[in-house]
């Protein structure tokens, strides 16, 4: 099976690799995995007071498609509000990267990672004392 040029590009030059401090108030962290292939993916978002994702990082251990999917996801979420980020669907990733059917689960993982990161951020927000009123 041949990888598409876009997958190879993201694999060779992954965007936004790294980590934020997961304890930080404005950071949401999502860690997801696929037990059938052993892939583990961490995706983090940094959100400003307006609820806009200003930056993102990822760290993925897995195949080229999983790395490319999460790399693309970090590019796409930047500049979006958290609600908009939740609208990113795995099929968008599949189309953009031209993933073959047997690699679709990698894109699902990336979508799950975005959701998990947003969820983690929102949980922090709702439990933080004297919230900054950024929700609306």
């Amino acid at each position: 099976m041949a990888y598409s040029d876009k997958v190879i590009d993201h694999y060779n030059n992954p965007r936004n690799v790294g980590s934020f401090d997961k304890g930080s108030e404005d950071v949401g962290t999502g860690i997801v995995g696929a037990p059938e292939c052993g892939d583990v993916m961490k995706l983090q978002i940094k959100v400003n007071d307006e609820g806009v994702i200003t930056d993102a990082r990822f760290k993925t251990f897995g195949c080229g498609s999983a790395i490319a999917s999460s790399s693309l996801a970090t590019e796409w979420v930047k500049g979006k509000t958290v609600d908009e980020a939740l609208k990113i669907k795995n099929v968008d990733i599949v189309n953009e990267l031209a993933l073959p059917p047997i690699k679709i689960h990698c894109s699902v993982l990336a979508e799950d990672a975005i959701k998990a990161a947003v969820e983690d951020y929102q949980k922090k927000k709702s439990s933080s004392p004297a919230g900054s009123g950024s929700a609306s």
Partner: peptide, 24 residues
């Protein structure tokens, strides 16, 4: 079955991330 239910015990995946980093 594994295909439908991917959950792992709490905290396990974060640990796997660390182990993967060590191996890398």
């Amino acid at each position: 079955q594994r295909a439908q239910e991917k959950r792992t015990p709490a905290g396990f995946l974060a640990e796997m991330l660390e182990v993967n980093e060590q191996i890398e």
